[in-house]
Simulated scan of single mutants.
Amino acid sequence: MDAGIEGGQDDKSVRMELARLRQEHRDLDTAIDAMSLTGRSDALQLQRLKKKKLALKDRISTLEDKLLPDIIA
């Protein structure tokens, strides 16, 4: 029984983390777009933001796989 409860709590924490990471990903996307549109962006800073955004995307994918594992039928 305890494992089921733990699993439920784990699912909830994973979903909360996913929501936070998705919001951070959207925020970075907005910041990158704004920097690109203004033309006043620092190339190094823009590169760092894009790298961080990519790392967030990878983390999001990993967490999504935890929630929805591939089942081969």
Rank of each mutant, 00 (worst) to 15 (best):
A43K: 15
L46P: 01
L18D: 10
L37C: 02
D70P: 14
V14G: 01
L68A: 09
D10L: 07
L18I: 04
I5Q: 03
L67V: 03
L28N: 08
I60G: 04
K12I: 15
L44C: 01
Q47F: 11
T38N: 07
L44D: 01
L68K: 12
R15F: 14
P69A: 00
Q23Y: 11
Q45A: 12
L49K: 01
S36Y: 09
A34F: 04
K52H: 09
L44K: 12
G8W: 01
K66S: 11
M1K: 06
R59V: 05
D58I: 09
I71Y: 04
D33N: 08
Q23A: 12
D65E: 06
P69F: 01
K12W: 07
T62D: 11
R26W: 06
G39P: 12
R20C: 11
A34M: 12
G4N: 11
Q9M: 15
Q23H: 13
L63Q: 06
L28E: 03
A55N: 12
I32L: 03
S41Q: 12
I72V: 06
K50C: 07
L56H: 09
L54S: 12
A43Q: 06
L46A: 03
I72P: 12
S36Q: 15
I72A: 13
K12V: 13
K50L: 11
L49N: 06
K50D: 14
A73I: 05
T30S: 11
A3K: 04
Q23S: 12
R48I: 04
R26V: 02
A34E: 08
G39V: 01
D2F: 10
S61A: 15
G4F: 02
E6L: 08
A34K: 10
D29A: 15
L46H: 01
A43P: 08
A73S: 10
D42A: 01
D70R: 00
K66P: 08
R59M: 09
Q23W: 06
K12E: 14
Q47M: 08
L54G: 03
R20E: 14
P69D: 03
D70S: 07
R40V: 00
